[in-house]
Design a protein around this nucleic acid. Structure first.
Lengths: 139, 139
DNA sequence: TTTACTGTCTTATGACAATATGACAGTTAA
DNA sequence: TTAACTGTCATATTGTCATAAGACAGTAAA
């Protein structure tokens, strides 16, 4: 569970923690049932306030991604989505639409977009176990 | 150029304007070279302050999507991305990675995701000319 | 020039976001 | 019980965001 923060990114520290944990879970480098780093140790390592980490964990818990066992710690949950299949598909459709708008404004055509999606899917499948993005992003 | 705002969405008014114009451009219902609604008329129609619309237009201009001709109005630009092809691909890869993380947490598998992407691509191709999402999103 | 339309800038204000400190409560093991 | 660890809550501070009002500047046509 390597993590590091970019304080110049403009993105709040607690959201960077949220994203990195979600990405680790999605790429398989963090397994269901596994315990997360303690709030205080992680805060010390990242050199941020413990409540900033606590806020990240609270956000993950509110999203149903982790659970906390009082006095013990926080753990990654297995199948956490509380939504029905159709609701989950609807949410994802909206995300996809947003992606298509971005692709259009980046002048990336349909074929190329599909290639990129397949490329990234393959990268995810590899589970590099690294921090951040699952496989490094060719510049 | 139909638009309407949802004041309960939590999303700022000016960003809703930005998104709707970008979506209109991406779906073809707003054509390159076309003039946008004036700041004051649009603000009146949406019942928001003119500066809120101005902020949306400023954001679109900073993204290189529209240009303003002083005294005349704002116009949609054709090929606006100032980035090289590889930079554009890199940006999109990061967006795609974010989508894949979301899909994972929504427990939507690879095959199903690809189906959804194709479904939305087809919907975009149809250019409904409507506001908001290009083709209505089956609930 | 005048009028009426474009967008722009400056400044203000209210709300909220991000972070920080201190006191607190549950769990485990010595 | 005590000590050391877990996470939590209440609260305060700081800064930024979203929105708004007024004055301003460029353009076009009468």
């Amino acid at each position: 569970m390597l993590m590091h923060l970019n304080f110049n990114s403009g993105q709040p520290a607690y959201l960077q923690v949220v994203d990195q944990i979600k990405t680790a879970a999605a790429s398989g480098s963090l397994q269901a049932g596994e315990i997360l780093p303690g709030i205080r140790p992680l805060a010390e390592q990242l050199r941020i306030n413990r409540n900033t980490v606590a806020k990240a964990y609270a956000e993950l818990e509110s999203q149903g991604i982790i659970e906390t066992q009082p006095g013990k710690g926080c753990f990654l949950i297995k199948n956490h989505s509380p939504f029905t299949r159709e609701v989950r598909r609807k949410i994802l459709r909206e995300e996809i639409d947003a992606l298509l708008v971005k692709a259009h404004h980046l002048q990336v055509e349909k074929e190329e977009l599909l290639n990129l999606v397949n490329e990234r899917l393959a990268a995810f499948g590899k589970k590099t176990g690294s921090h951040g993005t699952p496989a490094s992003n060719p510049a």
